[in-house]
Amino acid sequence: MSTHSPDSSQVSRNASQQKGAAPKGAPQKPSWQRGRWMLLLIALICGAPIAISYFTYYVIKPKGGSTSYGTLIEPQRTIPSALMVTGDDGREVPLDSLKGHWLMISVDGSACGETCAQKLYFMRQVRATQGAERERVVTVWLRTDDAAVPAVVKTAYPDTRMLRADSAAVAAWLPATDKTNDTDHIYLVDPNGNLMMRFPEQPDPSKIKQDVTKLLKWSRIG
């Protein structure tokens, strides 16, 4: 009676199957490919809030009950790189150095009459009502002359940036209406330096607050 010893190739195949190796021809998904898809997924998740906020306000342009109170500025106007401002320290800097925050901007002469003071008050209150999010908002008063600011105004609005700027340069950047001037409005600039909204003359501060709150909620920039 004769016996046949298994050849070496057969022994190797059996050993591989016993160790749980995948059958010959089974598809294998490289680990580097899985990692690439994971990185792409993380990038999409991180970028979604920014994309949604800009898509909502610049593409969808809500109508009906969800219409914004402020007028959207189209096309977008970035802060001019040549627009310089001067603080109380006498140092001249580009206005776009304030990028990185949401800017609420008012324009007036330094004497700051009743309408000017009312706008500064509205901006201060809108910012204060944002709670923990208020640090994302900076209120800015662009003064169009070199006169002194009344002490009572400085005391009442210590957190407002009071900056001197050329009136012609400011007017060329900030659009008014056929019946108004830039000094009649409050403007909103996004953290990327884009002028995005103009609020009406004699505005309702509660409605400005609603617009600002929505923007801060939907956007994580700034």
Rank of each mutant, 00 (worst) to 15 (best):
R127H: 09
I60D: 10
G70D: 02
S97F: 01
K63M: 06
I60K: 15
W102R: 07
L83G: 05
K119C: 02
A82S: 14
L83S: 05
T139I: 05
T71R: 07
R127S: 13
L98E: 12
G70P: 00
A148L: 10
Q125L: 02
T129C: 02
V85N: 03
L83T: 07
G100E: 11
M123N: 14
S106F: 08
L72M: 05
I105W: 00
T67V: 13
C116M: 07
K61G: 00
G87A: 13
G70F: 03
L98Y: 14
A111R: 12
G90C: 09
Q118D: 11
V126I: 13
A148C: 00
G90A: 06
E74G: 01
D89V: 08
A117E: 15
W141M: 11
V93L: 10
A111N: 10
Q125I: 02
A128Q: 15
V107K: 00
G113T: 03
S97P: 04
P75G: 08
D108I: 00
P62E: 11
M123R: 07
T78K: 10
E92Q: 15
V85W: 02
R136I: 03
I105S: 00
D89F: 04
S68V: 01
G113N: 10
V138M: 08
G90Y: 02
L120D: 13
Q130I: 05
A82F: 01
D89A: 10
G65S: 14
V85H: 00
I79H: 03
G70S: 06
H101T: 11
I60P: 00
M123Y: 06
R136V: 09
L120C: 05
M123C: 11
T129E: 14
G64P: 04
S110V: 01
L142H: 00
G109C: 03
G87F: 05
S81Q: 12
R136A: 13
